[in-house]
Amino acid sequence: MSKVFKRVVGLACAGVMGWLLSACSPVRMLNGLTPTRSFEKTSDIAYGSDPRQTLDVYRSKDPAPGAPVVVFFYGGSWNSGSRADYLFVGEALASRGITTVIADYRLYPQVRYPEFLVDGAQAVGWTYRHVAEYGGNPQRLYVMGHSAGAYNAAMLALDPQWLQAVGMSPDNLRGWIGLAGPYDFLPIKDEAVRPVFFYPDSPPESQPINHVSRGAPPALLMAAETDTLVNPTRNTGGLASALREAGVPVDEFYFSRTSHVTLVAALSRPLRWLAPVLDHVSGFVNH
């Protein structure tokens, strides 16, 4: 089979899966195909007083001592999403021995920027203080996110004020992982996102790329080559270049068979053939 034919077949399959994942209840389909016997899950842990300030913890049923820890933030344009939709992410990371925290956070219109970053920092603070109770090592702590969640992870890793508010600093992070994140998106084109960031008066300090510094934690950045929602060249490529110029270690990968949505879906068992997203995350966290 020629390389060209393989690529055409791969793109066709990715297109079909993208259509399926844009149909009714896509995450229900993925979660329904996710095995549940490989991990232990502790649900509905409050890290704040608001009903949205709640998280779940996933861990391997056979954890190694002092397991690495990832706090994962989902996307949804800061106006939608639920941690219950990301069981497949918890299972994927737990299957590689990573204790995983998946946190809800307040969304628009309940809040605007920067309140969801306040929530993210509080979730990380809870994790740092309590994850040892679940077999995780707080000295091996990472933040990770997809799309808007990758933005949240980036801001927590790059702008010290958010973690400082919970008695921490980016120095407490061993690194951070961004999947298809918007890191440099002013002026805002997406009408659904504009009110979240006070368009047209969106503050420049809301952009992760404006907080790059030499002391930032190492980064793993991944994107789909043909992402039509978040420009991968400007956002992933631009941030990776800025980090390197500041002397920050960064790994950068682009995949041809994924879209903006299927990039995170590639963590699920049925779709891991799309891209080695889980392998890269596991290698970064377990090195």
Rank of each mutant, 00 (worst) to 15 (best):
Q161K: 15
G120I: 02
A165R: 11
L267N: 03
Y105M: 06
A242D: 01
Y105K: 06
Y128I: 10
G48T: 13
R106P: 02
F88P: 03
M155S: 10
G215M: 05
V230A: 05
V4G: 15
F72S: 04
N152L: 13
S169A: 09
V57Y: 01
Y199W: 14
R269K: 11
N172H: 15
S213F: 08
L173W: 01
Y108T: 00
S213I: 08
A180P: 05
I209D: 00
G32Y: 00
A240R: 00
F253C: 05
A266T: 08
W162S: 03
Y113I: 09
A46G: 13
K41Y: 07
D201W: 11
A121I: 08
D251C: 12
L186E: 12
P68F: 03
R129T: 14
D201Y: 15
W162I: 05
R272W: 06
R83T: 06
F72R: 05
Q122M: 11
A192W: 06
S49E: 13
S268D: 02
L30K: 00
G75T: 02
T100F: 07
G283P: 05
Y47I: 07
E40M: 13
T228L: 08
A132F: 04
Y86P: 00
M144Y: 13
Y151T: 04
L158E: 00
V166I: 02
T233S: 12
Y142P: 01
V250T: 14
D62C: 15
P160E: 06
A12D: 02
A224V: 06
L117F: 01
P51S: 11
G97S: 12
V248H: 01
Q122V: 06
N235M: 04
L158S: 02
A84F: 14
P160G: 02
V27Q: 08
G135S: 03
A275Q: 03
N286L: 12
A157S: 11
T127E: 09
V118Y: 06
I98D: 07
D171K: 13
A157K: 01
L263Q: 13
G97M: 13
P208A: 14
F5C: 07
T236Q: 12
V166Q: 02
S49I: 15
G125Y: 10
Y113N: 10
D251G: 15
M168H: 00
P68E: 00
G237N: 05
E115M: 14
S256H: 15
L55F: 01
A46H: 13
W162E: 09
V27T: 14
L221S: 00
N172A: 15
A46R: 15
P200L: 09
R234Y: 00
V71L: 14
Q122Y: 10
E205L: 13
S147Q: 00
G15H: 12
V248G: 04
F185K: 04
A224R: 01
P160S: 01
Y128H: 13
V57N: 02
V212E: 00
